[in-house]
Amino acid sequence: MTLLKVLLFVSIVIVCFLSFLIHPEHEPHYIWEKIPVFEAIFGFVGCIVLIIFSKVLGHYFLEKQENYYDYD
């Protein structure tokens, strides 16, 4: 697990570093195209938002026992 963590950390550093080196082929149109690590931030924040939102929605509104729809 520790090895995997290190590997993940190193690869994140590498891809983030690479995005500073490579320049877009066309002029950036949107503000987020100008931020080199935008995708990384978006991925991280988006992931956490999705998990929390979905689990809250499930926990407070939608979760039911597995026999919820059973009838006789």
């Binding site: 891809v15 690590v37 991925g43 991280f44 992931c47 998990i51 929390i52 979760e63 026992q65």
Partner: peptide, 26 residues
Amino acid sequence: LQMLLMTVAGVWLLLERLEPQAVINL
């Protein structure tokens, strides 16, 4: 690649919250 790797990091952080429960969802 940035997006995918950072999602892995996010999941790792919240792994316990993601644990599937024996319930159904409406």
